[in-house]
Each structure stands twice: as C-alpha cells, then as structure tokens.
Simulated scan of single mutants.
Amino acid sequence: MNRTESFPRLFVTDLDGTLLGGGLRPYSRIPDAVCRLLDRLDRSGCQWMTNTAWEARPQIDLIAASSMVSRPLYISGSVGMELGVLKGGELAEVQPYTAQHRERLAEVCRSGLHPFVKEMCGRFDSGFILFNGFWFALTPVEGQLEAMFAYLRERQPQLPELVISLLPHEKRFHAHPAFLTKDKPIREAMRLHDLTPDQIVVAGDELPDLPMMDPAVAAHAICPGNAHPEVKRRVLEMGGVVGEADCGAGIVQAFEALCAKNGWQLN
C-alpha cells in the first residue's frame, strides 16, 4: 500500500446502523458501495477494522459474503471484549487482550449482571427478552413500561458495574457491563501498530459508539444521517462529517466529504 503523506492509517467502524441497515438486503452482506470505499481506503494506505456489538466469529461470514477484496486489520466484537485477526479464513484471537476481557466479564456476570437479569425477569413480565452473555435487553408486556423505567432509574445508581440504557421509543432497556467500551480495542490496535489519534477515523451511529470518539483515541469521526443526535453533535465537535443518507450510503458520503475537507487523496 502506498500511503499518502497525511492520509489516515486506520478506519474503525461499527456495523448495525452504520455500515448495515437502511433497508438494504441482504442484511448479512456489507453494501457494495461500502465495500468499494473500504478497498479504496486500503489502496490509499488506510487499513480498516470492525468494532461492534456483534460477536467476532459471525463477522467472518459477513466479510466473506461481501464484495471487498481487502481484509480487516482486526475484527472487534462484543462491545470491545473480543479482538481478533483473520488467518486463512479463521479467527485468531489477539491475546492476552481477549482472555483478560473474558475473565473480567465472568467476574461481572457473577457479581452484577446475572443477579440483575434474575431481578428484572422476576419483577416484570417480558414480551421480549435477549441475553447473549454480555448484553441484556427486555421489553415488558403492555402496561409495565413506565413502572419498569421508574424502577430502573432508582436502581441504576446502585449498579455501578452496569450501564443501563432506557429506550422509550423502542419500549425497552438494555444493559451491559460498564467495563465493555468500544475505545479499548482501538487503544490496543494503537499500541500494537504505533498509531496516533490523528491517524484514525471512526464511524458509528449510537451512544455506545461515543467512546470511539474520544480525542485520545481518534482525531476524526463520521456518522450517517440516522445517527443519534448526541453522536452527530460529537462528530461535528470533532470537525467531522455527518452523512446526508442513512447507514452505509451515509458513511460513504461522509468519508468522501471528510477527505475533501482535509485534502486527503482517496485512490
């Protein structure tokens, strides 16, 4: 790869609502326009990595089913818990990073998350429930939403090990261990590859993506048009670009506009 003098060296992106979504099908394939962008970045000397709530291994099939020729520098999953590289089509975990995070997750599950899951399932009737080992979401039956939110507002200060997000528009909440944040895999990539924030561009759409937009992690940020208002605000504060279109199409727009804004030559 022939890197332009000031061109970034790493692009880190979320999946759901950032690259994926917007009504494009199939959902299990990165849109072709985004794939072309990733390959252009690679040719320009900027590698890319995923950073998502997806577990790491299912991302292998997503990448294999997509049309880009380039491959990610890293695959990060489970809100920063997992970090791996593709070797011969298989995932090789980066250690000791991943093992240390799994050990910490086991501790938090024993002390906080599992008791909280039992508490909420025992107190409220669920219309829908999701728990994958680190991410817990619950939609109550009709008529219990306000009572559940009031209860969680009281409980949240007593549960410092957990991040609890109330989502009134989706009629649910979700919770995950507070130590799982999306800046951590980027910091590890920075350490391993001697990267600085000015060499990194990040893309996201929801509140869990905000830790990626820490100036100590990335100097450049973009988001699609469907991003949460707080994410859009952070992107603009960083001098980044908010795409007009939603999801992947908006990310392509935003990255190309960021290149024009900074005088970067995208091959």
Rank of each mutant, 00 (worst) to 15 (best):
I75Y: 00
G204H: 09
A254Y: 05
I30F: 03
A147Y: 03
G77F: 07
R172H: 11
A147S: 13
R57G: 01
H220F: 15
G243I: 07
S67M: 07
D214L: 08
A92N: 08
G240P: 09
L10M: 01
E170F: 03
L86W: 00
Q156S: 14
G84Q: 07
F255N: 05
T52A: 08
W48K: 00
G248I: 08
R36K: 10
L37T: 04
D61S: 14
A175W: 00
M148V: 14
P211L: 08
K171T: 10
V117R: 05
R191A: 15
W48R: 00
D125R: 15
S6A: 15
C46V: 02
G21R: 14
E154A: 07
G225D: 13
P140W: 08
M81R: 09
G204R: 05
E170G: 01
G17L: 05
H169S: 13
A137V: 08
Q47L: 08
N226E: 13
R110G: 00
M190T: 03
M81V: 09
R233L: 09
R29G: 06
L152R: 12
E170N: 02
P197I: 00
L192Y: 02
S165Q: 11
G239F: 07
F173C: 08
A56Q: 09
E82D: 12
H176D: 11
